[in-house]
Every structure is written in C-alpha cells, then in structure tokens.
C-alpha cells in the first residue's frame, strides 16, 4: 500500500442506486408504451418522440452551459424523461416546430428557471404540454385515426378522444347510446386496453402503461402510493356518479382507461421533484389529483383533466411536504 488512506464520515457503504439509474429506469418503463404507439400510429410517433427528446436534451445543455454557466448535467437522464413524457401527451400529427417549442417551454420555463433538476415546482413536461394546449388548441386536439404504419395525417379527425366525444354528447343522449352509436364509433374496453383509439402518443395503450408501472414498482423506482391513490379515487368518484345516474355518466372502468389517466397517474404525477415525499403526503396528493380530474372531466370545460389536476396538486406539494410529516418513531407511545 503506497497511497494515502481515505477518510470519510460514515456510512462507508453505498447503495447501487443513482439518479441516472432511476431516470433511465423510467425510460425503460416507458418503452412498451412507445412501442405500442408506433404500432398504432406508425413511424410518425417515433419522429415526434425523438424530436421532443433530442430538443429537450439540447435545450437543457445549452441553458446550463451558456445561461446558467455551470457544468451541464444532461447525463443524469432527467431531460430525456421530460422529453419522452412531453411527446407522450402530444398528438402524433403535431407540427414538429410546435414539438420543439413545447420542449423549450418544458425545459426552459418548467425546469431551468427554477434552478434545474430538483427545484422545479411543476412537472416540466406538463408545463410544456399545457403551454401548447392553451396556445395551439386546434393542433393539440387534432388526433389521427390509428391505422398503424398506414396512418395518414390527412384523414385526421378533430377532438376524437373517447372522453371528448362523451363530453360533447352528455347532454344529447344517454351514455349507453353514445357508446353504441355507430357514427361516434366509441372504442370498447378491449380497444382501450390494447390502445386502438384516438389520442395523444402515450395515452392510448393501457396494457403498455400498466406493464411500465409493474416494472417501476419491481425496480422500486416509485412506490404504489401515488398511482394507486389516484386511480382508486377516480374509480370511486366516477363510480358514485355512475351509480347515481348511469344515463349521464360513463362507468368507472371507462374513465380509468381513457384520457391519459393512466399515463398521468403512473408517470406524470409520480415525478419525484414535484410530488410529496412522505407516504401520507403522497396519498393526499393522489386523492387530490383524482378528485380534481373527475371534477374537470365531468363538470369542467375540458374533456380531460389529468394534466391540470396534476399541475394544481404540484402547487400544493410544498404545503403537503411542510404539514404532512411521516409518523416519527416514539411519537405516540403504543405499548403492549
């Protein structure tokens, strides 16, 4: 031994976990959904996704290097996750210029203005998506009909996600009539499950998203608290509405499988930085998202509310972190 001994405070053992590993884990978990969307929408889906991911990474690099003047940290993979998630809530036929603009807003406004990774109060991908949605509503709500690799963007139909169809027709006819109306061509449960419906890139294939959830739970990237509490709340809330008046409300399962709820609950709401840190806090946050989602979906102007619900609850995260504490050891003495 000829080198000096290293001295550091304990512990001297470290887990193999690291920020990049967690981020790439999320990327892997998103892979099935990406494959599914390519299957249904063709190569255009891959194009939108790559443009989004690449521009997010480039913007992050440029902002860190030239504006914040610090060592770029694009290797941690967080910009890739943001890019993927942003792409996943865009329609496949969105002009690529808008995709790049969305990435700039997501990274520049959503993340870097607050100091980069770890400091952003809102989910950056959602900031980008909501910016695009409010600024370019027409382009953002024009979805192509899924026809696999033959998808042509000329036959794009407007506002054709199942939820928007429902939202437009609630007043006109009972729900079961909407479901079976041949003109509206509402997808059934199996189509929802496998992903054959109109919608944003990543929100269509329920099975692929659930597969990703299973992966993230097994790898312990996320815990069950947020997704399960959101999904349960939505199921219970829509279930009550449905039982009270089945004519005017879709059943809970339909709600769970549409409108990007799974995408939001599994990948967006669980974003580490903008979600609460204690288990109790996570459940409160999840329940809040669930309630706001249903409120917006059923009583609001927009057919889909997950993204807004998540952003609203993001704003409550610091408050939740501040007031909802994990139960301390030895706080309440229960002896027996």
């Amino acid at each position: 031994m000829n080198k000096l001994l290293t001295v550091s405070p304990s512990p001297h053992e470290y887990s193999k976990e690291s920020t990049p590993k967690l981020m790439y884990g999320v990327v892997i978990a998103l892979a099935p959904a990406l494959l599914a969307t390519i299957w249904f929408f063709g190569w255009a889906a891959l194009l939108v996704t790559s443009v989004s991911v690449i521009s997010c990474v480039i913007f992050e690099y440029l902002i860190q290097k030239f504006i914040l003047k610090k060592e770029p940290s694009i290797k941690d993979g967080s910009a890739i996750v943001t890019g993927l998630l942003l792409a996943f809530c865009l329609p496949t036929n969105l002009p690529l210029g808008l995709v790049i603009l969305g990435s700039l807003v997501a990274i520049g406004v959503g993340k870097m203005t607050f100091g980069g990774l770890g400091n952003n109060p809102f989910n950056p991908a959602l900031v980008g998506r909501v910016f695009l949605f409010l600024s370019f509503p027409v382009q953002m709500t024009t979805w192509p009909v899924p026809k696999g690799f033959n998808t042509s963007f000329s036959d794009a139909i407007t506002g054709a996600t199942p939820l928007s169809v429902l939202n437009e027709n609630y007043e006109k006819m009972p729900v079961d009539q909407i479901m079976n109306d041949p003109e509206l061509s509402m997808p059934g449960y199996s189509k929802l499950f496998w992903g054959e419906m109109g919608g944003s890139l990543g929100e269509i294939a329920a099975f692929a998203l659930i597969l990703g959830l299973a992966y993230m739970l097994i790898r312990k990237i996320i815990t069950w608290h947020i997704p399960v509490s959101i999904l349960l709340t939505v199921a219970v809330f829509t279930g009550i509405l449905w039982l009270a008046n089945p004519e005017a409300n879709a059943d809970p399962l339909y709600h769970l499988m549409t409108g990007g709820l799974l995408l939001g609950a599994i990948y967006m709401a669980t974003d580490y930085v903008s979600s609460p840190m204690s288990k109790k806090g996570m459940i409160i946050y999840g329940v809040g998202i669930g309630i706001i989602t249903v409120l917006i979906r059923r009583f609001g102007a927009y057919p889909e509310g997950v993204q807004f619900a998540i952003l609203i609850m993001n704003a409550f995260t610091p408050l939740i972190n501040n007031y909802i504490k994990p139960s301390r050891f030895g706080e309440e003495v229960k002896n027996g």
Binding site: T19, G116, G118, Y272, P276, K279, P326, S327, F329
Partner: peptide
C-alpha cells in the same frame, strides 16, 4: 454528489421516521 431530486427514499429508509 448531485442535486436532491426529492425522491423521498431517505424518508422511506429512516427508521426513526425523520426527513
């Protein structure tokens, strides 16, 4: 060392229920 990503793993790991 990287920035805190607020994953909450430290809270989960703490046997004393601290943050």
């Amino acid at each position: 060392t990287g920035p805190c990503i607020r994953c909450g793993k430290c809270i989960t790991a703490c046997a004393m229920g601290l943050e």
